[in-house]
Design a binder for these strands. Sequence first.
DNA 1: GTCTATAATACGATAGAC
DNA 2: GTCTATCGTATTATAGAC
Lengths: 194, 194
Amino acid sequence: MAAVAGHEDTRTRLLATALKLFTEHGVEGTSLQMIADELGVTKAAVYYHFKTKDEITEAVVEPGLRELESIVAAAARQRRPGARIDHLLAGFVDVVVRHRALVALFSGDPGVARALEKHFFRKESFMTGMMTILTGPDPDAARVVAVHAALGGIALAGGAQELARFSDDVLRESLLDVGRKLLGRPRRRPAVPS
Amino acid sequence: MAAVAGHEDTRTRLLATALKLFTEHGVEGTSLQMIADELGVTKAAVYYHFKTKDEITEAVVEPGLRELESIVAAAARQRRPGARIDHLLAGFVDVVVRHRALVALFSGDPGVARALEKHFFRKESFMTGMMTILTGPDPDAARVVAVHAALGGIALAGGAQELARFSDDVLRESLLDVGRKLLGRPRRRPAVPS
DNA sequence: GTCTATAATACGATAGAC
DNA sequence: GTCTATCGTATTATAGAC
């Protein structure tokens, strides 16, 4: 790890800078010049680490996306439908909290979807997989809307600038509460025995 | 009305085309060339109707934004805190349903906020006004998160492509339900007398 | 009201020196 | 690993004919 720290460090700083600018101005609204300036290098230096801008976009969202994929897969393996929902909700919220702005970026920015399409990742089918677990079979309109609002609301709230001051634990519990209410999964321990 | 139809029609078609492309590719990801091509005219023709791209962005979002502003003002005039919340929620959902993709665009696209800033509209202070009504005074973290998720979830679900098939009435009732659950406003008529 | 033509600039991306 | 310099293209925007 330490041996490649010199290389890894610049690459990591680059991705962190890109994520910050992407959430601020959108992927298409962020130029390589802006990234280079923020990093304190030239455009050519950026191109040493990544061959194209799409490759940067991909690398920014990849870690969070991989986590989400494995969570969906693990949730699908649960036997009871309720357990599938609980597993997916807890995992989704956890990824949102630990990556904050990333999931909101993935959910809302069309530039991300366009960049991923070129490397054979279909956002639409991925979302359908999550939806199927959360809605169940033959859902009515209200359920489909509620699930959409839950995923969107959790992602957007997790990436909101005004909520950055909250700790991971506080944000996680609050977002779990949002998901439970919208998905009809009341919590087990009502907190107060009285 | 009919006398200016020739002018109004092209301008209206232009705004509808712009909104469609903005939601598909984002504001910064949409060029005037794309708008002109979709309209079947040249870029110069587009510039006859609007002096700058920011002016187009502004004109696209303006109608929905004006409605939201008057709804917030009307909600603030309600006496009881619960009535303020109910008024704002119903109005917000109604605007989302009638304009669909527009509110999601306003909520999520950084290009919109940037375009509006130049004409003295501060998105941040506008959102704070809505938040204050919905959270009440001295809200805890869970409440702030819930309100954020409610507004974001409703806006995002309203603009979702997969929910476009639902009628206005069905979508409105479903989104109201989302808002009521997250804001702690259970509905009056529980539907089934039994 | 829409066109052709063009200016000025910014973009993504590459070549080659150090 | 970062630089200077540059290529080709696309961008916003304008001028002037019809």
